[in-house]
Computed example of a mutant assay.
Amino acid sequence: MSDLKVVLHVSEADRWHAALGNLANLTALDDQPAVRVVVNGSAVYVLQGQHDWLGHMAKAAAKGVTFQVCQNSLKAHDIEPGTLPEWATTVPNGVLALAEAQQGGFAYIKP
């Protein structure tokens, strides 16, 4: 695995298409970087229900991508953390998670 670390920030539901394209490209690399996705804002809505985008996210998670979901955004959008897919973890604050990732050497990408 590459020494490169990438954090994708998805904060709007309509940006998932671009984020999923980025994830597909990153996870297809022979020397795949460490990839983290921080989800907040209206983007949390996409983690509900059943649809093909969740399948793409699950495949990325199976390849080592971590998904961190902001608890503040879940609360603001009346979403129970227990309804998230099993591969998604919650963090108390998405913005703080982004800052910590950057402090830890992750390159910030906003699809």
Rank of each mutant, 00 (worst) to 15 (best):
N40D: 15
V6A: 10
C70K: 09
E86Y: 13
P92E: 06
G104C: 10
T83C: 03
D31T: 07
D31G: 07
S11R: 14
Q68E: 07
F67D: 03
G82N: 11
T89C: 07
A18C: 08
E80D: 15
D31L: 06
T90G: 06
M1W: 12
V39S: 06
P81C: 02
M1N: 09
A99M: 11
L8M: 08
R15F: 04
T89I: 07
A99V: 12
D14N: 14
W16M: 08
R15T: 06
N22C: 05
A28K: 07
K5E: 02
R36S: 15
E80M: 13
V69K: 10
C70P: 01
W16L: 09
G49K: 05
Q103K: 02
S2N: 11
Q32P: 14
Q50K: 08
Q48M: 03
V69W: 09
P111K: 02
D52M: 11
M1H: 12
P85N: 13
L20C: 04
T27I: 07
F106I: 02
E80C: 13
V7H: 06
W53G: 15
P85E: 13
A34K: 05
K75R: 07
T83L: 00
A19W: 03
K75P: 06
A24T: 00
A24W: 04
K5Y: 09
G64N: 08
A76D: 14
S11M: 10
K63F: 05
S11I: 00
L8H: 13
V46F: 04
T89L: 08
S73G: 14
Q71G: 09
T66Q: 14
L4Y: 00
G94A: 05
A28L: 12
M1A: 14
Q103M: 04
R36N: 14
S73E: 11
A107G: 13
L4M: 07
G104K: 11
I109P: 00
L4P: 01
I109S: 05
Y45F: 12
R36E: 15
I109F: 04
D14Q: 13
H51D: 02
V95S: 03
A18P: 11
F106W: 09
G94R: 01
L98T: 01
H17A: 11
A43D: 07
H9P: 14
V10A: 09
G64L: 09
H17C: 08
W16H: 12
A61W: 14
H17Y: 03
V35R: 14
L47H: 02
L20R: 05
H17Q: 10
T83F: 09
P92I: 01
P33R: 01
A97H: 03
L8Y: 15
S73T: 12
V65P: 11
P111L: 00
A107N: 08
K110D: 06
L26G: 04
Y45S: 15
L29H: 08
K63P: 06
L96K: 14
A13M: 04
K5V: 00
L29R: 10
K75H: 02
Q102M: 04
F106T: 04
I109D: 10
N40G: 15
A24S: 02
D31A: 06
N40Y: 13
K5N: 03
W53I: 07
T66V: 15
P92G: 06
G105T: 11
A58N: 09
A13L: 00
V6D: 10
N25E: 02
V35A: 15
D30C: 05
A88H: 08
